[in-house]
Computed example of a mutant assay.
Amino acid sequence: MSLAMSNITRRFGQTEVLRGIDLTVDKGELVALLGPSGSGKTTLLRIIAGLDWPDAGSLAFDGDDWLARSAAQRRIGMVFQHYALFPHMTVQDNIAFGLTVLPRGQRPGKAQIAETVQRLLSFLQIAQLADRYPSELSGGQRQRVALGRAMAIEPRVLLLDEPFGALDAQVRRDLRRWLRNVHDSAGTTTIFVTHDQEEAFELADRVVVMNGGVIEQTGRPDQIYDHPATPFVARFLGLTVELPVTMQAGRAQAPGFDLTALARRALPDGPATLFLRPADIRPVADPAAPFRLTEIASTGALRRMVAENDSGCRIESELARRDCQGLETGMPVSLSALAGQIFSRTASPGATAPFAADDHIPHALKENRL
């Protein structure tokens, strides 16, 4: 069974929020919709949930047209950022709520509801909280209760909208690991919305990067991190250093840079842009180099450095403190790039540099760009 979306579009007035979304989510898969605010993530989630309808396109679960089904008929479980628990109900009553409001023909008996609630309380490790009210719980505990309420109806698809956004950093990290374990144990098909890269990469089987109402790239977390398909994805995932380079016979060249570690790219000769992460740039002392270290700042374990040349090119790098021995402000350095992504400056906007024949790229890495 799979959830299939085809050419989903949605407009609010003159604003096109979703511009032709094609996406399939397989049974038991955990997929993250990742992107900045305004990219269309939550609108797409609401359409899947039956809380909104597209202007065009199709949405089907296991071949069943969900656009012809109400939210209740789709049997969706949804968890919101701010929990949306009923304050006058205990934990066990909150979890039981979805079962008690099912149509009479589908509603379990009281004993079966009680058994389901007790099983979920134990499964979610909150049995000791059964008789408490939401006001007596921590944020992390409330989120577990919200997840239990969503899971009680045995949803076909579980939807999470920024589920950890209201929690502090440590609680978010703990709950991410816990949620991944819950997902693996329950086997529920899950889609969650986030703007947090770390959250998406740690939790998801597959990440869908969205921007401006389109899907920029779809793939496994490590594939997207190592091989961003568009300049937007590169910038969004931390490749914040942009260096003008010249392509020659598939190799990038730039004065003062050692780019020999980069794989050959199937790009035409001429101007291109190399996207780098600061952590993938290594300054090396070199009296003949055109760059000089102008800034060195410490964050404890790391040293952040800035190198500049006479033409005003400013390159930031980040090294472990133990790798900075002998580097001082004012010292001439050459810069070595360990990894990066190259995009042709003559290609259409968003076009990625394809790999040359001697490189290997999995099929799933190819971008799903609309």
Rank of each mutant, 00 (worst) to 15 (best):
R180V: 14
R180C: 11
R180F: 06
R180L: 13
N181G: 15
H183E: 00
S185Q: 15
A186I: 15
A186K: 11
T188I: 13
T188Y: 05
T190P: 04
T190C: 06
I191D: 01
I191G: 00
F192T: 05
F192K: 06
V193S: 01
V193C: 06
T194K: 03
H195R: 11
H195Y: 10
H195E: 01
H195A: 05
E198Y: 06
E199P: 11
A200L: 00
F201H: 11
E202L: 13
E202D: 10
E202N: 10
L203W: 12
L203E: 00
L203N: 03
R206K: 11
R206H: 07
V208P: 00
V209E: 05
V209F: 09
M210C: 03
M210A: 05
N211S: 11
G212E: 01
E216K: 11
E216W: 08
G219P: 10
R220S: 04
D222N: 09
Q223A: 11
Q223M: 08
I224A: 00
Y225W: 15
Y225K: 04
D226N: 13
D226W: 09
H227P: 05
P228A: 02
P228K: 03
A229N: 03
A229D: 02
A229S: 15
T230D: 01
T230F: 07
F232R: 02
V233N: 08
V233R: 01
A234F: 12
F236I: 10
L237W: 09
L237T: 15
G238I: 11
T240R: 06
V241S: 07
V241Q: 14
E242M: 05
L243K: 03
L243D: 01
P244S: 04
T246M: 09
M247R: 11
M247Q: 03
G250D: 00
R251V: 05
R251T: 07
Q253I: 08
Q253G: 09
A254C: 15
G256V: 10
F257Q: 02
F257M: 07
F257P: 00
D258T: 12
L259I: 07
T260W: 04
A261Q: 15
L262W: 14
L262T: 04
R264Q: 10
R264D: 06
R265T: 13
A266S: 14
L267Q: 07
P268V: 13
P268H: 13
D269E: 14
D269F: 08
L274V: 12
L274S: 02
F275P: 03
L276V: 12
L276E: 00
L276G: 05
R277M: 08
D280V: 06
D280H: 15
R282K: 04
R282F: 06
P283D: 10
A285S: 14
A285F: 13
A285P: 12
D286E: 11
A288G: 09
